[in-house]
Design a binder for these strands. Structure first.
Lengths: 346, 346
DNA sequence: CCCCGGTTGGCAACCGATTGACAATCGGGG
DNA sequence: CCCCGATTGTCAATCGGTTGCCAACCGGGG
């Protein structure tokens, strides 16, 4: 045994942050560090008197446990990641908030990562994050299926608005909202509706299209798809020409941003919405009610989707925390003024 | 190598996550784990040949370093936290994005925490986060000064839009934008302007008010403050009555949300913006150009503010990464249609 | 042929917790 | 009075890296 001189006398050398540790508590309370650990998180494992002494010492030192140090032996980080393609996309807003609430309610920390619309950057970011989190929510992913499968094999993972075999998925049911929307348009006299779709590979775009198709057919309306398009205002602007050429009297956009673009392009051509053309979107993003005209849209419970995604992750990793109010995720029509009666003459 | 031997190391004994470690690499490369560590992050410390062998082994195992394990001995987590009061506030969007970009450019991970407008929750969240991060950005804090000081003593900390002694602060200079705005209003014929301020304790609200006061006085305009108000649409709605009573022909709101509320309330009373009343805001939030009427506003470089905040943190913790394009944060007027010529009769 | 300085790699002690195994202690029943 | 089981607390190994210190090794000059 080589005598380690520096040790006992000076105390722990070069403490980096000065944050108190369980060793400090142990010393103050006159017990062994492991007893401190047990007192603090295995209720009943140590005597009430000892526990009280330890808690008092912890309070006195303003002790906060170091989650990193805890994570090492336990393998549990109490952290979840939400990956989004674009933080400024209003859609991820509600998802993040719902997830954040749910996570913090269970004492979990949430990491938000932005992939900046790049699949490879997204994969790299996730690789970096994997060891530090207990689970991953893919809110608006750009990753190909096989890559998602690969990641899901390494960490609990939930996707939002994108279904895949063998991967837990959370998605509000689009049919109620779309059925309401189509009824609404039909009631206004429209008999033909165009769907300005999203990116070619978007799972949710296809779901919306299918639901629209079914609902429109059920009412005997003529319906067709225009796309694919970028899911942005610019995408809507660019799609407008084809909408106009199609002669449709009503148009359902992939999302509110695209709807905004359509309205903008229409205005520039002197076509009035909703007098000459009815436009509806999806998501009911912030501001949808303030624009001119206020946008008719199908709202999804994004907050709920974020919460349910976290809930599913908790279920998978064995945390029992009732965190989402409901698991019924649905959609509903929000009728405003961008849709109106059939144009009498065009 | 199409024939990849089905991984001889089938079951690493009871390892919890199965993620490869430097020990696995060491074994595969026939060296000591410490040599692996050195090869991977102390360039030149090991021979080129050994390093190559180690890197090959790492690649073969698809090794990703465990940031938690690294953080323990080094005390460096490569993680930054951004704390916001309300994730749905459009203002924090740009800040988060700017910070995210800057952080990830330097290989740092960003944690977003929401305090849900509660000071005590914010303090608790930060206490929980402190051991896991290298620095903290307070984007829209609800914390009292002394609490901020307390935290700043424990971790590098930067505030945005709030200055305090002894704490690094980042804030775009409001004067250029406000001067432009006042010139703009004056040029339209307005001689009286009301400021609908933000929360009583808001540092940035006071800065805006002071700048507005100076600029208006310089032009001989009459100017007064109405407040405090909640920084929301609802806050604007509630403040409208007092604006109307004041007889001001132009009003500058604490932010775009408040401006929106004012416009909404005005419309409900049959008062047209901008014909009867000119309204301007701050921040140029998403949607400001689509609402009706498109909002005149003072835009701040929020993206830049987020990036500079991270830059300052890096400086403080000794990371040299040029990450922000510029450190000059300014503001500018974006004139749209919610401001117009002086009402001829009122 | 030996000595020397510079490389290169290994050993072992940490970082701050957790936890299985075990020892000490205590009260109570026989 | 002794033994036994239950309770309480201690020891030491461990998670996955990092790093100071030192030994082995290298080639070259004297």
């Amino acid at each position: 045994m080589s005598d380690s001189t520096v040790d006992s006398a000076t105390g722990r050398r070069g403490r980096k942050s000065g944050a108190p540790t369980i060793y400090d508590i142990a010393e103050l309370a006159g017990v062994n560090p492991s007893t401190v650990s047990r007192a603090l998180n295995q209720p009943g494992r140590v005597s009430a008197a000892t526990e009280a002494r330890i808690r008092a010492a912890a309070a006195e030192l303003d002790f906060h446990i170091n989650p990193l140090a805890r994570a090492l032996p336990t393998g549990r980080t109490n952290t979840l990641a939400v990956v989004v393609a674009d933080i400024t996309n209003p859609v991820v807003f509600g998802i993040i908030r719902g997830a954040e609430r749910a996570a913090s309610r269970a004492g979990f920390t949430l990491i938000i990562a932005e992939s900046q619309e790049s699949g490879s950057l997204e994969a790299a970011t996730i690789d970096r994050l994997i060891p530090s989190v207990d689970g991953i929510v893919l809110a608006t992913t750009r990753l190909p299926d096989d890559e998602i499968t690969r990641i899901a094999a390494r960490k609990p993972l939930v996707t939002i608005n994108r279904a895949m075999d063998g991967v837990i998925s959370v998605a509000p049911d689009v049919r109620p909202g779309i059925t309401q929307l189509v009824d609404h348009l039909h009631g206004l006299g429209h008999r033909t509706v165009a769907f300005v779709s999203g990116p070619g590979r978007s799972w949710i775009s296809e779901r919306r299209w299918e639901a629209l198709l079914d609902a429109a057919r059920a009412l005997g309306m003529s319906v067709f798809e225009i796309g694919p398009n970028s899911p942005t205002i610019e995408g809507g602007v660019r799609a407008f020409e084809r909408v106009e050429a199609s002669g449709a009297t009503s148009v359902v956009a992939y999302n509110d941003l695209v709807a905004l673009g359509l309205i903008k392009a229409a205005r520039e051509k002197g076509i009035d919405v909703p007098r000459d053309l009815s436009v509806a979107g999806f998501d009911d993003i912030f501001g949808a009610e303030f624009i001119s005209p206020p946008l008719t849209t199908v709202r999804a419970d994004l907050l709920g989707a974020g919460a349910v995604a976290v809930q599913e992750l908790f279920r998978k990793i064995g945390v029992d925390a009732a965190v989402a109010d409901s698991e019924e995720l649905t959609t509903e029509l929000v009728a405003r003024e961008s849709t109106g009666p059939l144009p009498t003459a065009r």
